[in-house]
Amino acid sequence: MSDPTRTSQSTRHATGPAGAAARTPAAAVAPTSRHPLAAAFRLLITAAALTGLVLAALGTAAPAQLLTRFTVQANLAAAVISACSAHRAWTGRHPVSPRIAGALVPFLALPALLHHVLPAADTTAFTVPATSTSGFAQALSPQLLYTVTPLATLADWLLLTTPRGLRPSYAWQWPAYPLLYLAFALALPAATGAPSPTVASAVTLGLAICTLPLVTIGIDQVRPAPRLHNNRISPTGISPLK
């Protein structure tokens, strides 16, 4: 792949205005590419995550203790990173690093998987405790935290990001924090306000933590790339026709 910041041998010895223009990196003169629709969609992700967190806090007697739950931490990260990504898409700046933005997919998928597929592990510190009161707001919070935000983040990653941006090294970097959190939940269950996971639940959590990044990276390698239109109106090299 060619480097837009380097110049070819034919342009290195060019003189005059043509030579100066030829030696200018293409990235320095490329127009700003703004994506307002992507920015709006990512703001909706931020709003969904924050709304679910606020409703969860209103339905518990100890809102501050929710910060020790993995679901709350993952949704807070989704809200902050999606807001940052929305700003960058609106202003045309470079997107957030795939190392950070891509980590949201397995981080949000883990509590969603526990809530929808593994109800036996739904009482661990990886999920939000059930509220003692009933009502529409309390029923809406789990839907936002376990369904809407994870699915919207997955759609953002699949449809609005360039594929094959995730590196194999992320497969051991991303599980580092969830595994440390699992060890913390096993060693100090009172600090999280949740019962200690059983041996079966701990093994299931460990396998899910290590498998989800592998699945995410594998999908990233085979998903189709969006069609990019070439907006360059002339070649970057020198020719008699320029």
Score class of each variant (00 low, 15 high):
Asp3Cys: 10
Asp3Lys: 08
Arg6Ser: 12
Thr7Arg: 14
Ala14Pro: 10
Ala14Trp: 11
Thr15Phe: 11
Gly16Ser: 13
Pro17Gln: 11
Pro17Thr: 10
Ala18Asp: 14
Gly19Ala: 11
Gly19Phe: 08
Ala20Asn: 05
Ala21Phe: 10
Arg23His: 03
Pro25Ile: 04
Ala28Asn: 05
Ala28Thr: 06
Ala40Met: 12
Phe41Ala: 15
Leu43Lys: 03
Ile45Pro: 06
Ile45Glu: 11
Leu53Lys: 04
Leu55Asp: 06
Ala56Glu: 11
Gly59His: 07
Thr60Ser: 07
Arg69Val: 03
Arg69Thr: 06
Phe70Leu: 13
Phe70Asp: 10
Ala74Asp: 04
Leu76Ala: 14
Ala78Ser: 13
Ala78Met: 10
Ile81His: 01
Ala86Lys: 07
Ala86Glu: 05
Val96Met: 10
Pro98Asn: 03
Arg99Asn: 09
Ile100Phe: 10
Ala101Leu: 13
Ala101Gln: 09
Gly102Met: 07
Leu104Gln: 03
Phe107Ser: 13
Phe107His: 13
Ala112Cys: 08
Ala112His: 01
His115Met: 02
His116Met: 07
Val117Gln: 03
Ala120Phe: 11
Thr123Met: 02
Thr124Met: 05
Thr127Pro: 00
Ser134Pro: 00
Gln138Phe: 08
Gln138Gly: 00
Leu140Phe: 06
Ser141Met: 03
Ser141Arg: 03
Tyr146Leu: 05
Val148Cys: 02
Pro150Ser: 09
Leu151Asn: 02
Ala152Thr: 10
Leu154Ser: 12
Leu154Arg: 01
Trp157Leu: 09
Leu158Asp: 01
Leu159His: 09
Thr162Asn: 08
Leu166Asn: 08
Arg167Thr: 12
Arg167Asp: 10
Ser169Gln: 10
Ala171Cys: 14
Trp172Ser: 09
Trp174Thr: 09
Pro175Tyr: 03
Ala176Glu: 02
Tyr177Pro: 01
Leu180Asn: 02
Leu180Ile: 13
Leu182Ser: 07
Leu182Pro: 07
Ala183Val: 15
Phe184Asp: 14
Ala185Ile: 00
Leu186Tyr: 01
Leu186Thr: 10
Ala187Gln: 02
Leu188Trp: 14
Pro189Arg: 02
Ala190Arg: 12
Ala191Cys: 05
Ala191Gln: 08
Gly193His: 04
Ala194Trp: 03
Val199Ser: 12
Ala200Gln: 13
Ala200Gly: 06
Ala200His: 08
Ser201Lys: 01
Val203Phe: 09
Gly206Asn: 04
Gly206Phe: 05
Leu207Ser: 08
Ala208Met: 09
Ile209Gln: 06
Ile209Asn: 06
Thr211Cys: 05
Pro213Val: 05
Pro213Gln: 03
Leu214Pro: 00
Val215Glu: 01
Thr216Pro: 01
Ile219Asn: 01
Asp220Gln: 05
Gln221His: 14
Pro224Asn: 09
Pro226Phe: 08
His229Tyr: 09
Asn231Val: 06
Ile233Arg: 14
Thr236Cys: 04
Ser239Tyr: 10
